[in-house]
Each structure stands twice: as structure tokens, then as C-alpha cells.
């Protein structure tokens, strides 16, 4: 982030009443907390928030973290590091509710693009509680446990990765010859591309939660990084070097590649895939995306429910009731056993 990542206290002051302003997801403007006057946020018209950076693993990479003036706070429980704009300093970690301690200014990477919140606090709160209430086989007291928890809004660092892959692969597959099943091997070559693979750059949002809430991410919705959008919210900055982001992303990419190889091979019963890929044209973006996180503890296990600040999609972690699981299992066992019993009794096959 450049010097502009810190917004002067004066810039968040209402010109009408000298009150404090916060970014409002509902209006998309800075809104005064005292007199409700709206102040339009102007963004740099020359900035290109969709710009991607090239990365070549064989060349020295020049991107360096920069020293920033925004005061970071670190969570004593989960180690998460967050910043706050304006007066909105929370005493608790938005990721885990642990207590925060102020840290000396640190280094972080420049963030070019972000999407500001468009889902507000109340809407997110409803979405998170609604999600919890719709879980099957959840403990009966889950809703009352969660009802005491509130969502908190945070901008989470994400990567987008592009790459071109030239893949040499081998698949082992099964074919049926008469009554016997035999293994066969086939090799092939495939060219494929990945475009804007989203990867959390923070350990607090897992890939699973990403796949539950960020269905609608579109790079064309990115806006230039503007600290006014952060007013009233927490944000985590980018701390991961590119190679670390790529390492995290490799697991997802491998999974998707295997699926594409299976399709490309045209074989039905693929048992095993091995491949070597030549990756070129790596491009990345460092962006911030808005999420609402509700954390709660069930039987001593910390869990979270995450609502996307873009559309309100919600996904999270939930406990199961072992009694309800057992009851469902008993019910299903009765049904299956009865079906089998009748089948056998009438000697159907």
C-alpha cells in the first residue's frame, strides 16, 4: 500500500457537523454518524484496479513489501493482524474475537484493487443466523449459542491467479472385457488455462468457505484501492509473498487439473492420473474482498460463519448432534433393512 493507504482523520470528518464518517454499504458513500450527511467517495479515475502483475518463477521477483503508516493490531489468540481506519477500532479480533494488541508499524504489499461492502451489518447478521438455523442434524441448542454472537466486517486479502498450462499426462483406467475388468494406460497432451483463480491470502478464510460465499466474484467489479471504503471496518493487509500464494494455490490447481485431464482423456473409469505441467504466463492480483464473520464456540471448539459482503451468500462451520445423527442413521437403517428383507423374502434376485 502506498502512503494513501492511511486516511487522515480530517478526511473522515463531516464537513457539515464535524462528526465522524463511516463507509455505508447501503449507499456506497461516507456517511456521517451524527447528522447522516452523505459524502461521495471519489476514486482515482486513472487507476486500473483490474491490472494484473506478471510473475516468472525463474526470474528474480522485484515486488517488495512497503512500510506503512497504518497502525496494525495483532490478535493474541489467532495471530491475525488487522488495521482500522478512522475511529472504528474494535477491541476484539474480527476473525476469532480474541483480544488485540497494538503493534509497531509494519510492512505489507501494495493492494491495487478491492470491492467495497454492499451488504450491511443487519443484513449480514440475518444471513448468518438464518444459515445456522437451516442446518440439518444440528444440536438443538446451536441457535441459542449462536444468537449471542454478532458479525464483524473485515476486508480480507485475496489473490487472483492466471496461468497457462501445457500438460503431459498419463491415465490408468479400467475397461470391462466380458466378465473381467482390466487396467489400461493412456497418455495425452492438453493445453489449458486458469483465469482469475481466487485464493485467500489469509489463513482465516479457508478455500472451502471461499467456495461457499464467493460465487459472484467478477474482476470487472474491482475498484481502485481507496481507504475511505475501509472507514468503519477492519482490514487485513497483504503479507504473503507471491511464491507463498502460489504454493497455497497449487493444491486447488492440481485438483482442477486432474478433473480436466479426466475429461480430456475421454475415458470413463479413470483410476489414477499422473501429469507433468509446464506453467507459463503466471499473472496475479492482490485484492481485498469484504466479508462478515460471525464467530462462536460450541463445546469449546471455535467455529465461524462467513457472509459475503458482495451478495450475502453465507457458508461456515457447524457442529453436528451425535444423537440426531444416530437417530437419522437408525431411521435409514430400518428403511434399508426392511427393503432388503422384503427383497430377500420374495427372492426377487
Amino acid at each position: 500500500m502506498t502512503e494513501s493507504s492511511v486516511i487522515a482523520q480530517a478526511d473522515l470528518m463531516c464537513t457539515n457537523c464535524a462528526g465522524q464518517c463511516e463507509y455505508s454499504p447501503r449507499t456506497g458513500a461516507l456517511t456521517c454518524k451524527s447528522c447522516a450527511t452523505e459524502h461521495v467517495i471519489t476514486i482515482n479515475p486513472n487507476a486500473d484496479p483490474e491490472a494484473e502483475h506478471h510473475y516468472d518463477p525463474d526470474l528474480p521477483h522485484t515486488e517488495q513489501p512497503k512500510f506503512t503508516q497504518d497502525r496494525p493490531y495483532q490478535c493474541e489468540t489467532c495471530g491475525g493482524e488487522v488495521i482500522f481506519q478512522g475511529h472504528s477500532i474494535s477491541e476484539n479480533c474480527p476473525y476469532c474475537n480474541g483480544s488485540l494488541v497494538e503493534r509497531p508499524n509494519g510492512e505489507s504489499y501494495v493492494t491495487l484493487g478491492m470491492i467495497p461492502f454492499s451488504v450491511g451489518n443487519e443484513q449480514a447478521q440475518d444471513a448468518a443466523h438464518n444459515w445456522v438455523s437451516r442446518r440439518w442434524a444440528a444440536p438443538s441448542d446451536l441457535q441459542s449459542v449462536v444468537s449471542g454472537s454478532n458479525v464483524s466486517g473485515i476486508y480480507v486479502p485475496f489473490w487472483t491467479f492466471d496461468s497457462k498450462e501445457a500438460v503431459n499426462y498419463t491415465v490408468n483406467y479400467k475397461v470391462t472385457r466380458g466378465k473381467k475388468t482390466v487396467m489400461r494406460t493412456d497418455s495425452g497432451f492438453m493445453k489449458t488455462e486458469f483465469d482469475d483463480l481466487l485464493m485467500p491470502a489469509s489463513p482465516h478464510v479457508t478455500p472451502l468457505i471461499r467456495d461457499g460465499i464467493l460465487h459472484e466474484f467478477e474482476p470487472s467489479n474491482l475498484r481502485p484501492f481507496e481507504p475511505a471504503y475501509l472507514a468503519g471496518f477492519a482490514a487485513e493487509r497483504h503479507h504473503q509473498p507471491v511464491r507463498e500464494g502460489l504454493r497455497q494455490n497449487a493444491k486447488d490447481k492440481a485438483l482442477l487439473l486432474r478433473n480436466r485431464i479426466k475429461k480430456h482423456s475421454g475415458k470413463n473409469s479413470v483410476v489414477d492420473v499422473s501429469y507433468l505441467t509446464d506453467t507459463t504466463g503466471i499473472k496475479y492480483r492482490r485484492i481485498l474482498l469484504p466479508v462478515w464473520i460471525l464467530h462462536y464456540e460450541y463445546n469449546g471448539t471455535p467455529m465461524k460463519v462467513v457472509t459475503c459482503g458482495l451478495q450475502g451468500r453465507t457458508f461456515g462451520e457447524r457442529p453436528f448432534s451425535s444423537v440426531k445423527l444416530l437417530a437419522l442413521a437408525a431411521l435409514a437403517s430400518c428403511a434399508v433393512a426392511a427393503f432388503g428383507f422384503v427383497w430377500g423374502a420374495y427372492n426377487i434376485y
Binding site: A137, D211, L256, F315, A329, A332, S333
Partner: peptide, 30 residues
């Protein structure tokens, strides 16, 4: 069958959730 059934039932619920809530074709979905 019931005594070992909790795990498959849990898996079934997770799959139902994935079908309705995870982005189809995403790594988490697979």
C-alpha cells in the same frame, strides 16, 4: 448399521450442503 451410520449420514448432509451452497466445479465442491 445404525451404530456405524453416523459417519455416512454426516457425509450425506455435507454433500447436500455442498450441492446447494458451494460453487459447482470449485475445489471445495470436489
Amino acid at each position: 448399521a445404525a451404530s456405524v451410520g453416523a459417519y455416512p449420514i454426516k457425509k450425506l448432509i455435507r454433500i447436500q450442503e455442498a450441492k446447494h451452497e458451494l460453487r459447482h466445479g470449485s475445489p471445495g465442491f470436489f
